[in-house]
Design a protein around this nucleic acid. Structure first.
Lengths: 221, 221
DNA sequence: TTCGTCATGTAATGGGTTACATGATTAC
DNA sequence: GTAATCATGTAACCCATTACATGACGAA
């Protein structure tokens, strides 16, 4: 059981905790809200959903659950397959969210972890941020060492690439410092607020509708 | 023939153009000089080398070719498999280097392309940089649109993640602007210098040896 | 009636990793 | 002699993508 995360699984579970959705919608959210870094395709999403159902973490429902309540009597609209998190699934997600293992701060995972910080307890948040930071500092050390090394003889472009890369990492470290700082200073107020607060604020807010339909080719890529 | 690039193939060809090497050394270079972004393992490198040999782009040589000429009479040192670029291979690389198709500026490819700018003609360099820039600007537009959209209701962390992501992209755009600018201003001097200059400056510089052996676990990761 | 979007899926493929197996050489 | 590093590989797997197949619905 619990054959270690996989970032898509994580993302799906996290999104479905906020509200039930069908696959198509899920993918769209994956590639806008969370997808700044990563885009997923149906070819991975649907099989993933299937295995999550098999694990008992999701159930398939039919009916226009997460549809806009304002335009409620759609009636004719064909009922799609809506996925909802089960109790087991919620529990499983809770476990994933509580993990602070090394893969929580690797490049790919960190983004997802951060995206669901709203569902994560503050101490885990801090641990993940700190883990990420030391990961990056370790990397910086190696990059500096590699630049210092006598010999190597890199040409200007390679050098420039490395310089820019290092600056990017340094920038992320500064960002993390600020975040950690602000997590720490947020100690006094919202002391009670750890993993329990999410339920009431994730209620059914109307989905966006009308206004600027922003270019049908979704995902930011 | 020429079954489209693949970044590892590209990197191997590019590195071997500078000087012949054996697999182990190749991987190390891949993961330091170029490897700021990406790390490769033997499990992908050796099979890749094999197919490149089959394509006729590399030949296997035995002998301590790229070894430090200062410590030349190593004699006892067992001869490893040294890979050298063939004429065909060089030609093929030239073609790859000249390509300015859309995948030249996608995230993964762009790094490699840039790393070998020293072997690339200036007009191609500019085209790739500009392509990359417009790619990023396109992305920025989508991100802005997605942030502007009414509804969506993202929580603070997701918002912060997107904000940071956008700033990263904006920063890269500024970097590209500077690079393009400096490529353009470099028009007068080195006018002759396009793809022909690389031969004499890539001669056998001594490999690093002695001094600080920088921590045997290579790759920057 | 046709186009665009919504919606769900499958099969083939890709491009890499991990873990393993093996062995030579060098430094202590 | 033994540990670390150098060196070459293979097999099993992973996680995703691409291309494809299918079809319903709404709007022009």
């Amino acid at each position: 059981m619990s054959r270690r995360a996989g970032i898509l699984e994580f993302a799906v579970l996290g999104l479905l905790r906020e509200s039930p959705m069908h696959g198509y919608e899920l993918r769209k959210r994956l590639n806008t809200s969370l997808g700044v870094f990563r885009a997923f395709s149906y070819g991975s999403l649907y099989p993933c959903l299937k295995t999550l159902v098999q694990q008992g973490w999701l159930i398939e429902e039919s009916g226009n659950a997460s549809e806009d309540p304002l335009a409620a009597p759609l009636a004719g609209r064909r009922a799609k397959i809506v996925y909802r998190l089960t109790a087991d699934g919620k529990e499983h997600l809770e476990e994933l969210l509580a993990q602070t293992g090394p893969d929580a701060w690797e490049d790919e995972h960190f983004g997802i972890r951060f995206a669901f910080f709203g569902q994560t307890s503050r101490d885990v948040r801090v641990r993940v941020l700190e883990g990420r930071r030391s990961r990056l500092e370790e990397r910086l050390a190696k990059m500096r060492a590699s630049l210092t090394r006598t010999g190597e003889r890199l040409d200007d472009y390679t050098l420039e690439l490395q310089r820019h890369g290092m600056e990017s990492v340094e920038r992320e470290v500064r960002w993390l410092n600020e975040l950690i700082e602000s997590e720490r200073s947020g100690l006094d107020r919202r002391r009670e607020a750890t993993a329990e607060r999410t339920s009431e604020e994730t209620g059914g807010q109307p989905r966006h509708r009308g206004g600027t339909r922003p270019d049908p080719s979704d995902d930011i890529t």
